[in-house]
């Protein structure tokens, strides 16, 4: 089986938030839910300072802590090692949200519109609400699944496809010939929070 992972080149990323918006469109995430998000960091003191954007998403860990703490087995790994949540088994205890070192998990009590004051839902919002409730559900934990449905339709992962800087590469880590394996090996790929021992599968290439 494939073992899917992602490489994000920090030298190329300029923090445009395209991936955030693409993810929102593809997965119909309600307000406050950001499966794909961009963090900002700063080093040094002005005027001698450098800023850096860091796009993060679920790291689809090999040894996921979120799966270890799940009391019902709702969190599971697919054959290609993607961590998913069975919304029918999740009780919404939010223990996994505490255990995730990357803060990748979100839970909403109810679906909310982006627009205030309880205006009637537009046709698109209605569709979006149904899509969210059918796939992810309310009251349960939700998170990125590397666009499993889009890939089943033969499309690219949304954040990868939308990246204007081509900073993101998606591929099979087990395939030594794949672009992502090559990049990790030759460009000093690293992962976030390796000390947590969760063996994340989203790699980053250094900004310099």
């Amino acid at each position: 089986m494939a073992r899917y992972g992602m490489v994000i080149d920090l030298k190329r990323c300029y923090g445009c938030y395209s991936c955030v918006m693409a993810c929102k469109l593809a997965n119909h995430t309600p307000p406050g839910v950001l499966w794909s998000r961009v963090l900002r960091g700063e080093m040094g003191v002005y005027p001698n300072s450098v800023r850096q954007a860091l796009p993060v998403l679920c790291n689809q860990c090999e040894e996921p802590d979120c799966m270890k703490v799940c009391p019902t087995g709702a969190t599971y790994q697919t054959d290609d090692k993607i961590v998913r949540i069975d919304k029918n088994k999740c009780i919404g205890c939010k223990y996994c949200m505490m255990a995730c070192p990357y803060g990748a998990r979100y839970s909403v009590r109810e679906w909310k519109s982006y627009f205030p004051d309880g205006l009637p839902l537009s046709e698109y919002e209605e569709y979006s609400k149904q899509a969210w409730e059918a796939k992810s559900g309310v009251g349960v934990s939700t998170k990125c699944d590397f666009c499993i449905d889009r890939r089943a339709e033969g499309k690219e992962v949304a954040c990868v496809q939308s990246c204007p800087a081509k900073a993101r590469v998606f591929g099979d880590l087990d395939d030594p010939e794949s672009e992502i394996s090559y990049l990790i090996k030759t460009k000093r790929g690293f992962v976030l929070r390796p000390e947590m021992g969760t063996e994340p599968k989203v790699y980053y290439l250094p900004p310099r």
Binding site: L39, R40, G41, Q52, F190
Partner: peptide, 9 residues
């Protein structure tokens, strides 16, 4: 998160 010399809030 600390990475590449940065701290990401």
């Amino acid at each position: 998160i600390k990475a590449a010399g940065f701290e990401f809030a």
